[in-house]
Design a binder for these strands. Structure first.
Length: 353
DNA sequence: AAGCCGGGGAC
DNA sequence: GTCCCAGGCTT
């Protein structure tokens, strides 16, 4: 009977998970601490980003900004530079903004209620719940990709979890599964993530799963069908021309607008077509178009970008021209340390090689 | 409700 | 090549 299995698992879910986490879960991750600042930073970095990708960034970031006060005092450029290559750069801008909000609106003390934490920019319900649980032992449930995978399988819930109706159902279910004892919230929340990450993944290891005897997907052979995958849609291809202007050992970079793709990052100028190269060159000074470079492909979640790099060299610059534009000449080595989109960084690395 | 926003790991 | 990850914000 489905309903009997459901009720049995629902009753024992938290108990099983906590026991499993203590025995088989992860205990050596650097953000498994009670400092809300460190928990918060890790949760933001881990949004749509895998643990292995975050580890290095996390350590480097903490080295520069060990607490919320130092982060609030930093410039946006410093923060973006430390985020460069991690992706989803609005996370860095929101992180910086939120640090200042903690200082100004919460008197430098991190809020300890999920509802208050959630008011910080870049912090939604799941991230706020993770911080509340890990740093303050609150009985709040997370609902991330791991939890969605575990719950849709354990409780046999079909439909794409990104769809609102399915997600609402998962939130309600997740809340009903919380342990009664708040002292277990750290192990429980970590257990949800660990189970999803190390056991209930793409190819689930059901034989070592603490939920296997109650899991609907395991019992009905549906682990390969659940969770229901995102509906497919064709990704469009876009083309762009990037100007790779060199003057001595320097390269010309421009600040991108604060919103949109690569918001706020330094980048190479984008030109409408190759005809625009000549006019740009003529306006800047005296120089030449260099032999062309091969195209560069960069793939996003929602589109494919083909970049045509156009290298040019400026021998002499027109006086006063620099002040009229939003760009700057930077030594290549210095540019590589700034916040740059990944493909732009690859181009500049090619330049310095 | 649907689209936007990066980069990389796993397969 | 495909899929999706410790999601949130905007429209």
């Amino acid at each position: 009977m489905f309903w009997r299995g459901f009720a049995m698992l629902q009753d024992s879910f938290a108990t099983r998970l906590v026991a499993w986490q203590e025995q088989h879960g992860r205990h050596d991750l650097p953000w498994q601490v009670s400092d809300p600042y460190r928990v918060w930073l890790s949760e933001i970095m881990l949004q749509q980003t895998q643990v292995t990708a975050v580890l290095g960034y996390y350590a480097r970031f903490l080295q520069h900004f060990p607490d919320v006060a130092s982060l609030a005092a930093a410039s946006a450029d410093e923060v973006l530079a430390l985020w460069s290559g991690l992706g989803y750069y609005s996370r860095a801008r929101n992180l910086h903004k939120a640090a200042r909000m903690v200082m100004d609106e919460f008197g430098g003390r991190f809020p300890d209620l999920r509802e208050d934490i959630q008011r910080l920019p870049g912090v939604g319900r799941s991230t706020a719940a993770a911080i509340a649980a890990f740093a303050f032992g609150r009985r709040e449930t997370i609902l991330d990709g791991n939890v969605k995978r575990v719950l849709t399988r354990c409780f046999g819930i079909s439909g794409f979890p990104g769809e609102k109706a399915v997600e609402n159902r998962l939130w309600t279910l997740a809340e009903s599964l919380l342990p009664a004892d708040a002292a277990q919230m750290t192990a429980y929340t970590q257990g949800l993530m660990d189970l999803g990450a190390t056991v209930c993944g793409r190819k689930p290891a059901c034989t070592v799963c603490p939920m296997v005897d109650g899991c609907v997907a395991a019992r009905q052979g549906l682990t390969h069908v659940l969770p229901t995958p995102r509906p497919k849609k064709a990704v469009p291809t876009r083309h762009t021309v990037m100007l790779l202007a060199q003057h001595g050992d320097k390269v010309w970079l421009e600040r991108r607008p604060p919103t949109g793709i690569w918001g706020g990052l330094l980048s190479l100028p984008e030109l409408a077509d190759s005809a625009a190269v000549e006019s740009w060159l003529a306006a800047q000074g005296r120089g030449d178009v260099l032999p062309s470079w091969p195209e560069l492909e960069h793939v996003f979640t929602h589109f494919r970008l083909i970049i045509t790099p156009v290298p040019v060299r400026l021998d002499t610059l027109h006086a006063n021209r620099v002040q009229e534009t939003a760009g700057q000449w930077l030594p290549v080595s210095q540019a590589l340390d700034a916040g740059l989109p990944a493909p732009v960084k690859r181009l500049l690395q090619r330049l310095s090689a």
